[in-house]
Design a protein around this nucleic acid. Structure first.
Lengths: 206, 206
DNA sequence: ACCAAGATTGCAGTTGATGCAAAATTGCAT
DNA sequence: ATGCAATTTTGCATCAACTGCAATCTTGGT
């Protein structure tokens, strides 16, 4: 399944593919919000996006992939490169924060799609499962970033724990923001999540 | 979809239902390991378990639910009750550890099924997504335990962050154990995961 | 022994998803 | 501008997952 290409594709063919994929996602979102998940078929989505049902499956493995799509972070992500290089500050917790901020920032470009996905997932539990699975892809990618930063080609348990911290902080910040959407953006909750996480990880001295 | 009932059910009907569900899970595991995911149908699984294909869907929402089943922890879980009551030690990080240990312990009864599920998920990426989704159910339950322990009926972000810590510690311990399966059991890695988690949550003083 | 409640099952049907191959579109070199 | 290779779209046939309905069977309770 192909992901959204954030950097402008070079040829007409690549550009049309990227546009077509977003058209399918947007058609899926519009139709499921209007009619309900059970009353929308792949044929409906494909037709609304102007392609054939067979073509739909050239872009997505399943119907649900279009509704809860994986929106990759930018391929040219200087934050990722900086992180792998040991930067930008050299202090791992701070650098982890920067990485999370850039992830949240990159998803802003799809804010409406992400909001629609969240609403549809809340209404359809099996889509919720897909959202979590999507997050797992990020967890896997970040595990590799930790390994690369430590100079290893094969991730070790410490890298997995690091990536789990990434997910922990990210989801915690989003949970705080969802509790008060009119308040500060997710990244401003990171300090609070970090503090809570630290306190849960610290047992009192004997 | 009904989960495994760990405590012995009272009537014949309940007992047969529980046995039938496990029979379907075991048939699914055996057939997928023998033939590969793509060469096993719902009809194959139902036939091997001695029920009709229609009955299969009385137990599972999807074919994949049988392969990667949700194995609930015991309904009579004193660790959960203790946790909600503020125990067993009154020290939250320690009590969280106990909760995790009990979760790992309760899954021991299904160790072979869990091992099979892990192998099949490694071979079939879309099943991996389902495993993560299953973990999310535990995360939701633990969020409610945190809220109940704090005396609230509606979970707050702090409860979500607490449950994310549960998942972080649990998955970290499992990752350490998977790196050295012949070594100590998962629960003995909790201290190491906790230490790494704490260090990632602690920024250096200015 | 009888009846209610719950579960199993067959059947027909819809939809998701796939492999194959023909047709169309795009990229590139001339 | 043209020709050709590469890539993509598409139609079609097919299989399997999954569902609603209702008849039949099994279990629980009196």
């Amino acid at each position: 399944m192909q992901e959204v290409i954030e950097s402008p594709p070079v040829g007409l063919r690549e550009r049309k593919k990227a546009e077509r994929r977003l058209a399918l996602i947007d058609a899926a979102h519009r139709l499921v919000e209007e009619r309900g998940y059970d009353h929308v078929t792949v044929e409906d989505i494909a037709s609304a996006a102007g392609v054939s049902p067979r073509t739909f499956f050239n872009y997505f493995d399943t119907k649900d992939d279009a509704i809860v799509p994986f929106l990759m972070w930018p391929s040219e992500n200087s934050a990722m490169a900086d992180f792998v290089a040991g930067g930008p500050t050299g202090v791992l917790p701070t650098d982890l924060d920067r990485l999370i901020c850039r992830a949240l920032e990159s998803w802003q470009a799809h804010a409406e799609r992400i909001a629609t996905t969240a609403r549809l997932a809340a209404q359809n539990p099996h889509l919720l499962a897909r959202r979590v699975a999507g997050l797992e892809r990020y967890r896997v990618e970040v595990t590799e970033l930790f390994a690369a930063r430590a100079g290893r080609t094969q991730p070790e348990p410490d890298d997995v724990i690091g990536a789990l911290a990434f997910v922990h902080l990210l989801r915690g910040a989003i949970a705080c923001w969802e509790a008060d959407p009119g308040g500060p953006p997710p990244e401003e909750h990171l300090a609070r999540v970090r503090e809570r996480m630290r306190s849960l990880a610290t047992e009192p001295a004997p």
